[in-house]
């Protein structure tokens, strides 16, 4: 890869921790891995947890720290979902790489250089089950010379035989203060001005995902210059302003179908993403005090259905309209289904 101009490099890459001990908030994992660095031995590993918590960073950092820049190319194979990873690749590429024997050479330049290679499979939950099955035996056969690092969001999508062969590490989603301190660090490096309100907004809209927070920050910095307000961050992040959600909810509460229809039309025309709308509406409904449990249940049920439909590619207007009409019926205690009485 050609050298990247400093300015055009995403901050996510620029501020990616280079060493395992710099990874924020994952104390347990860091402790085990520092131990690994000293003894130069490790089991197969499986990192899982929500996005933006440092899984890939940790895996890359440990590989770099074990082998150093010179040996890295020959000792580490990194595959992710953008590479083809069907069963053929597992059978040929991974197997070939795994089979190569490596000498336990002397330490080079202060790196441990243990006598094995590392295969990092990023986004392993998008691998097909067949491909995962094909890995099982490969892992055992070459365990003397190869270690596998699996990285995934959902551990349930990794087949049991693979999961049981690995040491599992759960990455926690980041707490607010860890996130704030990290963001403040970047702000001071980049010369940005962020008031405390903007900071707390950023932590809340990124929901524990540090990558997202940094991306929003960079987007806002590019668009609005060096002093960033909470409003700028919201406009970059695609979060819907709270008053829009409130307006829709109020329209549903009023029981006036035409009003709700108008609101929905407006939301679509303004181009707000409906999936985002659904999750914000959900928070509002669950947080509201004056809604009975039964009403709550009715609304949430339809919200869940609409979310599934959207994933299937259904039309945004019709789904939001369905949700709005159902919410209205629940709030105004209309019967769930129309009856002819």
């Amino acid at each position: 890869m050609a050298p990247v101009l400093q300015s055009s490099q995403p901050w996510v890459e620029k501020y990616r921790p280079k060493q395992v001990k710099d990874v924020a908030h994952q104390d347990e994992v860091v402790r085990v891995l520092t131990n690994t660095l000293e003894t130069a031995n490790c089991p197969h590993m499986l990192f899982y947890g929500p996005p933006g918590t440092g899984k890939t960073t940790t895996a890359l950092a440990i590989a770099h720290q074990l082998f150093g820049p010179e040996l890295y190319k020959s000792r580490v194979l990194e595959l992710n979902a953008s590479d083809d990873r069907g069963i053929n690749v597992v059978r040929t590429k991974i197997k070939d790489f795994a089979a190569v024997a490596v000498a336990s050479g002397p330490r080079q330049g202060g790196y441990p250089c243990p006598p094995f290679k590392i295969i990092i499979l990023d986004e392993a939950d998008s691998m097909t089950e067949d491909a995962q099955n094909a890995l099982r035996r490969t892992m055992e056969t070459y365990s003397k010379v190869t270690r596998f690092f699996f990285i995934c969001n959902y551990i349930s999508r990794i087949i049991e035989p693979l999961a049981s062969r690995c040491a599992k590490f759960r990455f926690k989603s980041l707490s607010e203060d860890v996130m704030s301190s990290r963001i403040l660090h970047i702000c001071s490096e980049e010369g940005l001005n962020l008031d405390s309100e903007a900071l707390s907004t950023l932590s809340s809209i990124s929901q524990g995902d540090l990558r997202r927070a940094i991306t929003y920050l960079q987007g806002a910095a590019r668009l609005f210059g060096s002093s960033i307000s909470a409003k700028d961050l919201i406009s970059v992040s695609g979060v819907i302003p709270q008053d829009v959600v409130q307006a829709l909810f109020a329209a549903c509460r009023s029981g006036d179908f035409e009003l709700a229809n108008k609101e929905v039309n407006n939301i679509i025309a303004e181009g707000y993403p409906v999936s985002q709308m659904l999750s914000q509406l959900f928070e509002l409904v669950v947080g509201a005090d004056d809604i009975s449990d039964e009403q709550n249940a009715r609304i949430c049920k339809r919200l869940a259905e609409a979310d599934k439909c959207l994933v299937d590619g259904a039309d945004e207007y019709l789904q939001l309209m369905g949700v709005a009409s159902n919410t209205m019926r629940a709030l105004c205690n209309m019967p769930e289904e129309f009856s002819y009485e």
Binding site: F257, A306, C309, A314, D315, L318, Q319, M321, G322, S325, N326, M328, R329, M334, E337, F338
Partner: peptide
């Protein structure tokens, strides 16, 4: 009252 029902089915 019919509007709700029709909306639901359209979706």
């Amino acid at each position: 009252e019919l509007k709700h029902e029709v909306c639901h089915w359209a979706a």
